[in-house]
Design a protein around this nucleic acid. Sequence first.
DNA 1: TATGGTTGTCTATATCAATAGACATTTAAA
DNA 2: TTTAAATGTCTATTGATATAGACAACCATA
Lengths: 244, 244
Amino acid sequence: MAGQKIQRQTGVALWRQIADRIRTSINHGDFDETGMVPPETTLALQFGVNRHTIRSALAALAQEGIVRAVQGRGTLIERKERLSFPISKRTRFSQGIGDQVRETRSVLLASVEEAANAELARQLKLETGTPLIRLETLGQADHRPVSRATSWFPADRFGNIAEIYQATGSITKAFKELGVPDYVRVVTEITATHADDGDLTDLQLSPGAIVLITQALNSDLDNVPVQYSISRFAADRVRFTVEN
Amino acid sequence: MAGQKIQRQTGVALWRQIADRIRTSINHGDFDETGMVPPETTLALQFGVNRHTIRSALAALAQEGIVRAVQGRGTLIERKERLSFPISKRTRFSQGIGDQVRETRSVLLASVEEAANAELARQLKLETGTPLIRLETLGQADHRPVSRATSWFPADRFGNIAEIYQATGSITKAFKELGVPDYVRVVTEITATHADDGDLTDLQLSPGAIVLITQALNSDLDNVPVQYSISRFAADRVRFTVEN
DNA sequence: TATGGTTGTCTATATCAATAGACATTTAAA
DNA sequence: TTTAAATGTCTATTGATATAGACAACCATA
């Protein structure tokens, strides 16, 4: 874990930088032998800060449920996470990570009908103003939120996709019922930014966290666009894998 | 730009959160009509903070060279950026973004010979301890650093790749001279984290910035691994595009 | 049960971050 | 030339961040 120094007077508090670094180390498996974080005094020495600053960092990680301090013993690691998430022609939420967790689930937060703006129309190869169904969904793995997504579907083909999706909890199944036996990922754009208000709430992140954003287009086997999605992933919980 | 609120007491200073948001807005083209950032008083009202806090944020962006304040006129946008970076079978640094900038360049920072550890051996399908050439490189677009990469090559096939790379400034050309007329990207893993010390220096980032990390394996046309790379991109300067 | 190592709590102090207000300076336009 | 609108500079105050030190409370184990 040692190596790079932490930065002072940058607008990012030392305790937050240190919390981020310790979280990364935990997810990297650096403390797997003991199952514990090094003692506060050791960390204070390593990072070159006061022990109280370390305590602030650990308190933040405890708040996230990642560690738990036990007086007299040390600070135990409660949970580590970074799911590997494949991106390919056949990218689906549940399939790729199904073997990494016990349970994956997708929850419908909201659905509305709206008209395509210029950008959506371009992506889905429709006229501006074409009616679309917009779904807001939350992807979970073992009851922990992993991603939140906004998806648009052409309303003429998929007018009642919200109901079917809510019943089945799967876009793939909903597509099947609506006459789309299979579909492929055409393009995926990936960016990263800091978590916004909605991310903090829906993904249960702490402020300053990073989200990975994918913008993806799915088409049916006749190459007709069926779904355009913008998904936001908790960056410290996932890793994307692009297979070619 | 309006919408989500900024977070208080999170370990990330308000001025830094606001600087990040304004940078994002600039890159998104929100102020393209005027070429200027809104007045400080307007921003202060929008973000619900004091004007001095806005001034701190703008000072940080000025330090990055993104805006320039002119007394009496306003704060001009000097530069916006987010290069689109395609990831596909034929991912190369210069080709993909060649049409987006005037000049791309790749600089060799260091090269050493070292033995493959277990992880590198697994990736490159070699025995542990096999000699490798490690190159540290810096990718630039229009004289602005975009990515820093560490690459490993089997030493037996590519013993003098460093010299050729330095001469040509291109991995593709170096491969050609060493008997690899073509190569393909086998797999790319993408993660995101906060910038470390080396990122701040090499990529000229400000602390708290985000880096996108790719771990990629390239193989020759006989499917023999020729290069394993870990690259770190300034997240606010790039966007990855995965074509399937 | 005694001891060393660990986390928990308290006080005190210095610096950074943010707010508040006033006024100067510069630019562009009326 | 005047005026409005914008950035620049200054002082003062409050709360968050970080350091420093001391000691209490707890746990495992010798």
